[in-house]
Design a protein around this nucleic acid. Structure first.
Length: 944
DNA sequence: CAGTGAGCGAGCTTCCGCTTGACTT
């Protein structure tokens, strides 16, 4: 059984509460017995523990906590019995009592905690050496609060794993920083409240099992927003002229490309001059307006320029320098491994984890680009050895690029050790993904300490006059790299769809001087179209999240997994494509929880957490503002998002689910997100038309043409073949009540056109109804055969005639499963197959039994197991099997068995506990308003 | 999003950040 504790740490550090902490020095001292002091050092990672153990020697026991050891309960199953009845048990946070969290030892960590307790018995002092960041501080405190050591406890921090760094850290021990722990706890509670309060709104209004959260919802929104831009994008087409100019036989290269940029002093429009609406942008301030060239114009002009003289109008030359990129941190490693090696973030991290565990690279989850002193030296030495002195700058490079919300607990990701091993040196130990990733990390690290690349860029303008009189200007540009510097070791790859140039790309122009004559060797009119912004890929999404300060190095990969697992996003090649469900969910959040999905929500939260960590802001006030509203006069902007609890209540009541699940796409066409996936809907001639949406159709490809096509295909569903008797096509479809088969009836012959429309309406021939039949539970829509379908459509089956009453007995499949029907008298059958096999004799036998209904049916079924008396009521308890699986009852109260309970092993105590919980929860529901049951929002008046 | 006939015990889903191990075949 999990034992939980609610922590009640005051908001400010109170003296005496910090455990241990009276000693000021960490220097090993001797105990009274003369034996040296033994210390237990706890770090977060096992690999790290091993390394530090080697530095510290035998007077130290170094253990790993392996991450967090406690957390809020994940769900009801994790809540200890003692707290189960509490109104806040679902959240795991006592919101009415200072937001006291309920912490339980994470089930998988019980063994680990026991190990740590044992290790603690063998030492004289405990040193908490978890990571020097907010989470690490919290882990330290959780260890303290869980292990409750009786010996002195100190906190140790280090940013780099090397012997001198560890030794120095040992000399600078401190106490646990409770303000920082408060900040972490506040973050944890906010995330819990956000996630566990908003997700249920989605379950009720969109679909069960969906989720919302501070990080995942913004990540999804970014992707949805991009898709909206793509959908709204109107492509523009424009033309220009590509020229191949000839500088004469002596020039190298003799010919070079140039492009038409102006006609009669007016700039020729390029892609950048068009807006997302396909129109030319109005001239920006201080910038001349551009004029778009159309095809006819471009062809005419190219013709008129044939054989005309051209001359160099200007030559502008500028130095080109590029600085190396900083060493990798998690996000940039994921981005570059994605771009260069095409690894998913997940693949990158799995490989990096192996490299880390086997000692090839430093820690893989970091937001720092800092290299240790020895790593800088190692990189410089390696660069010198490989490329020579000229390639290494006199001064070591320091990278202090601050990432938003960076905690910088670790070094950059780099080859491990004081001397880097070259890829060649590790090649026979490491292969596949790991080798390629190591090589990438090695290159980037070495390059980061190399010299700038230097070169020259040249822009040339060339003038000419067309035979028709227009003055034209062409432009050409060149880049030469005279000294590659770091580019020799490493060049960053461009994002997909980016129109930039790689840093090492060169294009040579001949030596040109002003006034020099040129000849156009070729003049080619070229057509272009503007493109919508490209979709996000895993690397580019992570880059955006990082820029917004959302997510942490340890979670980037899981964010992408989460939004895919929830069905918000799917991958098409490298691209992340949002689902229609994501449109519905994000639409809901934007409309009703707008502050929570603001791109700067996390940034604001981080600022305010900083003030909690600094001790200038109280955690309870702040959380109260967020959850109950800012009535307490709290200042923070997150608090002003305010009153989450009330907002959820209002939204549960007022959000119109039908409206939320309708995504307008164009004209009167909407995509509706139903229980069985999205479909198209529109109204034509007063009738609503529907069409299936193929699963793999990206939203931006749903054009009016595609929609028309989909609407024109009436047979949705999978065709199973043709009924040999009727000749009708049989299809399997997904419907409101689940999968079913039906037949496609041929369109009735067009009735003769009425001479006068007035009176002909009422005599419209009744449309024949197609036969339908639900699939059996044993069948699936993908595998059902024509034979199955024909059998299903043959229902109801006439079983025979009751000799007594003369009534027909039929077997059919209904809402509650297979049953027999005789007039208004019906009886359930036990199996679906019985529909086809039950004989008249058997049916009559079934009808001889009294109708089993309600209480009597329950009473008739024998209990699965009998238990002892309930400790509360004294009534005997039994386990029965019901609609929702096994449950325990005392005749009055019923309670389902939970996850982890088994019929065989349920004890009387547990049974009583379940019953007690159930009683506590049920405040005798009177006539609980019906709408909660069935599609609540449908009842509401349509909003339009 | 098809269309048919009861009468009955719900409980669970979900967040973000730290870490990797692993009950078996």
């Amino acid at each position: 059984m999990a034992t939980g504790t609610t922590s009640s740490r005051p908001e400010t550090t109170s003296p005496g509460r910090a455990a241990g902490g009276s000693r000021r020095s960490g220097t090993p001292t001797a105990t009274a017995a003369g034996r040296p002091t033994r210390r237990l050092v706890i770090v977060e990672s096992g690999t790290k523990a091993k390394k530090i153990q080697a530095y510290l020697g035998k007077d130290y026991v170094v253990e790993a906590s392996v991450g967090h050891i406690r957390d809020l309960p994940r769900g009801a199953a994790d809540v200890p019995a003692k707290y189960k009845g509490e109104s806040w048990a679902r959240l795991g946070v006592d919101v009415d009592n200072q937001f006291t969290p309920l912490y339980i030892i994470t089930p998988e960590k019980k063994g680990k905690v026991a190990e740590l307790r044992d290790a603690l018995k063998t030492v004289d002092e405990l040193v908490l050496a978890t990571d020097p960041d907010r989470e690490g501080e919290a882990i330290a405190w959780h260890l303290l609060d869980t292990l409750k050591p009786k010996i002195p406890v100190r906190r140790m921090v280090f940013h780099e794993i090397s012997e001198p760094a560890i030794r120095a850290a040992m000399e600078n021990l401190r106490d646990v920083d409770h303000d920082m722990v408060d900040a972490q706890e506040t973050r944890r509670i906010l995330d819990r409240l956000y996630g566990y309060e908003v997700s249920p709104v989605l379950w009720k209004k969109v679909m069960p099992k969906l989720s919302a959260g501070r990080v995942q919802s913004v990540a999804t929104r970014i992707i949805v927003q991009r898709e909206r831009e793509r959908m709204a994008f109107v492509s523009a087409s424009y033309w220009d002229i590509a020229a191949l100019l000839d500088a004469g036989a002596d020039a190298t290269p003799r010919q070079f490309p140039a492009r038409l940029v102006a006609v009669d002093g007016t700039r020729v429009a390029t892609g950048r001059d068009f807006g997302s609406d396909g129109a030319l942008k109005a001239s920006a301030k201080g910038k001349e307006a551009a004029r778009a060239l159309d095809e006819a114009g471009a062809r005419r002009l190219a013709e008129a320029l044939q054989g005309r003289a051209m001359a160099v109008e200007s030559v502008e030359s500028k130095p080109y320098t590029r600085k190396p990129y900083p060493p990798f941190m998690t996000s940039t490693l994921q981005q570059e491994a994605g771009r260069k090696l095409r690894f998913s973030t997940d693949r990158t991290m799995r490989s990096a984890q192996r490299l880390y565990e086997n000692g090839y690279i430093t820690y893989l989850r970091t937001d720092s680009t800092t290299l240790s002193e020895s790593a800088i030296q190692a990189a410089r030495q390696q660069a010198r050895d490989l490329y020579g002195d000229a390639y290494v700058p006199a001064q070591p490079r320091q990278y202090n690029r601050k990432v938003k919300n960076a905690q910088e607990a670790h070094e950059a990701i780099r080859p491990a050790g004081e001397v880097f091993r070259t890829p060649g040196e590790v090649a026979n130990e490491v292969d596949g993904d790991d080798f390629r990733l190591y090589e990438l990390i090695w290159q980037r690290t070495v390059a980061s300490q190399m010299a700038d690349a230097r070169g020259t860029t040249v822009s040339v303008r060339i003038a000419g006059t067309a035979a028709t009189g227009e003055e034209v200007t062409f432009a050409a540009s060149g880049r030469t790299i005279t000294f590659p510097g770091f580019l020799k070791a490493y060049v960053e790859t461009l994002d997909e769809g980016s129109d930039g140039q790689a840093d090492d790309a060169e294009s040579r122009l001949p030596e040109l001087t002003k006034g020099q004559d040129l000849v156009a060797a070729a003049l080619t009119p070229e057509g272009h179209t503007t493109n919508p912004p490209s979709r996000y890929t895993e690397p580019s999404l992570i880059k955006s999240l990082e820029e917004l300060g959302i997510g942490r190095p340890s979670t980037y990969s899981s964010i992408i997994k989460t939004i895919q697992d929830r069905g918000y996003v799917w991958k098409k090649g490298q691209a992340l494509v949002p689902s229609w469900i994501a449109f519905a969910v994000i639409g809901l959040l934007e409309l009703h929880f707008s502050r929570l999905v603001d791109y700067d929500f996390t940034a604001a939260m981080e600022d305010e957490l900083d003030s909690i960590a600094a001790g200038t802001q109280g955690r309870t006030d702040w959380l109260s503002g967020f959850y109950f509203g800012a009535a307490q006069g709290t200042e923070g902007s997150v608090a002003r998002a305010g009153g989450l609890k009330k907002l959820v209540g209002i939204n549960l009541e007022h959000i119109d689910a039908r409206e939320i699940n309708s995504v307008p796409v164009f004209d009167d066409v909407v995509v509706r997100v139903g229980r069985y996936g999205p479909y198209l809907e529109r109204v034509r001639d007063g009738e609503s038309q529907r069409a299936n949406l193929p699963e793999d159709l990206p939203p931006d490809e749903l054009t009016p043409e595609v929609a028309e096509q989909l609407f024109s295909v009436p047979q949705e569903g999978r065709s199973l073949g043709v009924d040999p008797v009727t000749g009708h096509e049989i299809v399997a479809k997904e419907g409101r009540f689940g999968p079913y088969v039906t037949e496609i009836l041929p369109e009735p012959a067009e009735p003769p056109a009425p001479a006068d429309g007035a009176k002909t309406r009422k005599k419209a021939p009744a449309k024949a109804k197609p036969r339908t039949g639900s699939l059996f539970k044993s069948m699936s829509i993908d595998s059902v055969t024509l034979d199955d379908a024909l059998k299903l459509l043959s229902l109801p089956r006439l079983v025979g005639t009751d000799p007594e009453s003369g009534e027909e007995i039929t077997a059919q499949n209904g809402r509650y499963g297979p049953y027999l029907k005789k007039g208004t008298d019906s009886r359930s059958l036990t199996g679906e197959e019985q529909l086809f096999t039950v004989t008249l004799e058997e049916a009559l036998e079934i009808y001889k039994q009294p109708k089993q209904r309600g209480r009597r049916a329950a009473a008739a079924t024998p209990p699965l197991r009998e238990l002892g008396k309930d400790s509360a009521t004294g009534q005997p308890m039994v386990i029965k099997d019901g609609r929702f699986g096994p449950y325990v009852t005392d005749g009055e109260t019923n309670a389902s068995l939970r996850k982890g309970d088994s019929v065989e092993q349920l004890t009387d105590e547990r049974a009583s506990e379940l019953l007690a919980e159930r009683r506590a929860k049920a405040p005798a529901p009177k006539k609980k308003a019906a709408p909660a049951r069935k599609a609540p929002a449908r009842k509401k008046a349509p909003a339009k």
